[in-house]
Design a protein around this nucleic acid. Structure first.
Ligand SMILES: [Mn+2]
Ligand SMILES: [Mn+2]
Ligand SMILES: [Zn+2]
Ligand SMILES: [Zn+2]
Lengths: 148, 148
DNA sequence: CAGCGGTTGAGAACGGTTCTCACACGTCGT
DNA sequence: ACGACGTGTGAGAACCGTTCTCAACCGCTG
């Protein structure tokens, strides 16, 4: 598991790549990076409308941040697609399927050996993997206790 | 009753649950189960239109098969959502990012230990995980030659 | 501070998914 | 085998999330 880490210096990333850094991009980044749980694009657009951010800009910026590796796409228990800002470096999300709270961990030690076996067995050249773990966080488990 | 076969006896599953088994459901099942690679709903609908299967029925049936655990949702390199009929039992897909050919493997031995650590460290009750490995199959690698 | 080129917002367009509803058909009791 | 019932189905409309268009705006550089 990773510890509480500093977020990316997004302005520096943009400057380094020569990509204009706008008020909207900062707001959208802050929306995702400032949350401790994944959010949908619709939620971001709704939350930023009052700040004068258009929905097309939210879509464009989420795609841009995704390309830059600054936003990861995950999904909750209902299959809804959400985005979360990962810390620096490679990690995987442990997601509460109910409230979408995200805890990051590094599981590559477990996967690397598996990938080597797969490559040897199948002849595939492996270029990546996708690992998410789903659970119910203590808070949500408490609230769901009464029901099934 | 006993099915030592590697593929699901879908008709028996339906009968056992008292769910009507129709011509369309057989066709849609065959479309996914008869392929060695994942396919999108759109592809299934296009491929079965000439058989007189409506697209609404394809959507409904894919959802139904998913609920029954007879179809697994995966995604290719571009993030496109596809479906593939897994063999009996729990497994994970190794997907060729180029042609979407799927090879299944059981990687739970590697994940189980990880999940135990995560559960202990976070207090989450873990109900599932999503693991896909991406690669290029030997055939596609040959066709593409060397690359970056 | 002026000029350029990328970015933005409003709304239209687009396309995948779901809904509606009359009709067809699978299932089961007889 | 037959008939009645209840579920499934197809065509097309509706719905809604996403992308596109384009004129105005603004961040960046000099
Ligand atoms: Mn990893
Ligand atoms: Mn597994
Ligand atoms: Zn939770
Ligand atoms: Zn391939």
């Amino acid at each position: 598991m990773t510890d509480p880490e500093p977020t990316h210096d997004i302005e520096a990333v943009f400057r380094e790549k020569g990509i204009p850094f706008t008020r909207q991009r900062r707001l959208i980044w802050d929306f995702f990076a400032g949350a401790d749980r994944a959010a949908t694009i619709t939620e971001a657009a709704d939350g930023l409308r009052s700040e004068g951010v258009g929905q097309a800009t939210v879509y464009r910026t989420v795609a841009l941040l995704g390309d830059l590796g600054l936003l990861a796409r995950v999904q909750d228990r209902s299959g809804e697609i959400c985005y979360t800002a990962p810390p620096i470096g490679h990690s995987h999300p442990l997601i509460c399927g109910v409230c979408r709270r995200v805890v990051r961990f590094d599981g590559d030690g477990d996967v690397k050996e598996l990938e080597a076996r797969l490559s040897a067995a199948t002849g595939f050249s492996i270029y990546g993997h996708h690992l998410e773990v789903y659970g119910i966080c203590p808070d949500c488990r408490r609230e769901e206790g009464a029901q099934a």
